[in-house]
Amino acid sequence: MRQYIVRRLFISIIVLFGVSVMLYLLGRLTPGDYVTSITAGNPNITVEMQERMREVYGLDKGIVEGYLNWLWDALRGDFGLSFLYQKPVTEIIMRYVPITFTLAFSAMVFEILLAIPFGIIAARKQYSRTDYFIVAVALVGISLPSFFFAAILKRIFAIGLGVLPLSGMVNARAGYTGWARIADIGKHLVLPVTVFVVTGVGGLLRYVRTNMLEVLNADYVRTARAKGVPEYKVIGKHAFRNTLIPIVTMVGNMIPGLFSGAVITEGIFSLEGLGNIAIKAVQSGDIPYLMGFNMFIAVLTIIGTLISDILYAVVDPRVRYS
C-alpha cells in the first residue's frame, strides 16, 4: 500500500508538470494581456508605455522563457505577485481558501447526507410515486443553472421575505465578534450552499439509486434474506456496504469539482473566495494568480483521486494495491 501511494505521488508530479504547461500556454495565448486590459480606453497611453509596462510585468518575454521563469520560481515555492492585487499569489490563496473551503465542504457534506438516504429510498421503492418524485426533484436540480436558481433564491428569501442576507460574507455594519460573527457567516452561507446542494445533489443521488438497484438484485442480498436477516439490516448492512464501493470513488472525485464550481456561485453572491477572484483574474489576464489557482485545483484533483483510490481499497476487500 505505501509503495503504491509513493508511486502514485511520483506519477502526480509528472501530471502536474503537464498541467502547468497547458495552463501557461492557454493563459498566455488568450487575446488581450493584462497590460492591454488595464490601459484599454486610456488615450494617454502610448505604445512605448505599454511596452515598458509589459517589461515590468514580465509579459515581454516569449512563452517558453516566461514559462521556464515561472516554473523555476514555482519549484522554489514562489508563485509570483498577482498583477491585480500586487501581493504574493500564495498569500492570496491562503487568505481566501477558508471561505471557498467552508462553502465547498459544507455543500459536500449536505449533498452526501441527502443523496445517500434518498437514493436508497428511491431504489427500495423503484417505480413508486416516491421514487418518481425523488428522481424528478433530482433531475430538476441538475437541470437548473446555478445563476438562475441563485437569482430566484435571492428574490424570494433576501428581497421578498427578507429573512436572509442578499450577498457577501458578513454583515459589515453590525461588526459582530465571536459566536455572533460565526452565526452571521452561517446566515450568509445558507443561500450559496443551497444553490450548491440543489444543483449538485442530483448527480450523486441518481448514482446512489442506480447502484443500489443493482446491488438489491444481487444474489448475496437474496442470500442475506434467506438467512433470516431482517430487511433493515439487509439494506443497511449487506446492500449498503456494497453500494458504498462506487460512491466512495465518486465522492473523492467530487472535491475538485466543488472548488471549481464555486467560481460562478461565489461571483453571484459576492463572496470573496478563490473562485470569485479567479473570474476577475481571467477577465484581466492576471497570469500569476490564474496559474496559482489552477495548480491548486490540479493538486486537489490529484489528492481527490488518490484518496478515492485508497478508500476504494478500504471498502472493497477484493481491491489490493501492490
Binding site: D219, R222, T223, N242, V315, P317
Partner: peptide
C-alpha cells in the same frame, strides 16, 4: 443457491 460465485457477500 445455484451460483456459489455470487451468493456470498464480497465485502
Amino acid at each position: 443457491f445455484q451460483e456459489p460465485m455470487t451468493t456470498l457477500n464480497p465485502v
